[in-house]
């Protein structure tokens, strides 16, 4: 890809090539250094958390420097012990269940709805699209009680169902809209070609659109992972017993505004809780980046 740019610059530039390429090299280096500096700003908080996680509690708030004067692993050992007799193994497993099901739900349900909005024609389409957008505009706090009553009647309180089932019903309209925008970026000729080959709407969706919207699906997976992992409001409302708690709830459990908090444990476990998200992001960003240009639009 960088070749392309190179070529284009060379052809458009009237200056001698050698002069140009030194300039370009300087430009690239400056860019690189700036990016590196930016990276430090981005990473500072993690460094700070990392350093705090190795400090004893009394040092966390008194020592300003990033390098702990005395290193302790106790926060990790003690933090992993968890809360109310449940260790972080339980909380991780719970988080993975919630996150995994949420990703699956969002990918299936949102892509179906998005396909209908982007490509199919049906009655009340515009109104329904507006309803979809409007459903994102009301703060969850005022929808909470009716939803809670519903889930309570279904006997779903203190299970993962109130957190997961809505994803299979495409309630995250954010992703529907995202996918709609992506599908509308896919040339219609492809649909038409498939239709000529005898594909119906269902086949067009499964064989053309779904594979071609990989970047949007990967984005959905990444965001669902992070947002579900970090979401604490619905989790603390619906999950009551520590055995059902997720990592995020357990992290909140370490802190108490009315008394002494377990800061060291909290930082240590916060660092650990970043690892799955980070690994997931690294693994999936490859798919995101390679996206359409290699999945064979040509």
């Amino acid at each position: 890809m960088s070749n392309t740019i190179n070529q284009s610059n060379v052809t458009s530039s009237s200056k001698p090539t050698s002069n140009y390429s030194t300039k370009k090299k300087i430009f690239e280096s400056v860019k690189f250094i700036l990016l590196l500096l930016g990276a430090i700003v981005m990473l500072y908080p993690v460094m700070w958390m990392l350093s705090s996680s190795f400090k004893t509690v009394d040092k966390i708030f008194t020592e300003v420097g990033l390098w702990p004067s005395e290193i302790t692993f106790n926060n990790y050992l003690q933090g992993w012990e968890g809360i109310s007799g449940f260790t972080f193994s339980t909380f991780y497993l719970n988080s993975f269940i919630v996150v995994g099901l949420s990703i699956l739900g969002n990918i299936i349900a949102c892509s179906m709805a998005a396909y209908a909005f982007a490509r199919l024609d049906f009655t009340f389409k515009k109104i329904l699209f507006a309803v979809m957008l409007a459903s994102m505009m009301v703060p969850i706090h005022v929808l909470l009680i009716p939803q809670y009553i519903l889930f309570n009647n279904l006997n779903w309180i203190n299970t993962y169902l109130p957190l997961v089932v809505p994803k299979f019903l495409a309630t995250d309209a954010f992703f529907i809209f995202l996918m709609v925008q992506f599908i509308r970026g896919i040339p219609r000729e492809l649909d038409n070609a498939a239709r000529v080959d005898g594909c119906g709407p269902v086949q067009i969706f499964t064989r053309i659109i779904f594979p071609l919207m990989t970047p949007a699906l990967v984005t959905t997976a990444i965001f669902t992972f992070i947002w579900t992992w970090n979401d604490f409001f619905s989790q603390f409302i619906y999950l009551s017993n520590p055995e059902k708690w997720t990592v995020t709830l357990a992290l909140r459990g370490f802190l108490d505004t009315m008394g002494e908090s377990m800061w060291g444990d909290m930082f240590a476990m916060s660092i650990l809780s970043l690892i799955p998200i980070f690994v997931f992001f690294i693994a999936f960003q490859k798919l995101l980046i390679e996206g359409i240009s290699t999945t064979g639009i040509k």
Binding site: I83, S84, L144, I145, Y148, I149, N152, I157, F232, F236, I237, S240, N241, P242, R252, G253, L255, D256, T257, M258
Partner: peptide
């Protein structure tokens, strides 16, 4: 005994939701 611990900040909104929801 089913135990339902919360932090102070989470406790109150949760309790009022539970009461409102009949739970």
């Amino acid at each position: 005994i089913i135990r339902e611990p919360s932090t102070w900040n989470d406790y109150w909104p949760k309790l009022s939701t539970q009461v409102a929801g009949g739970n």
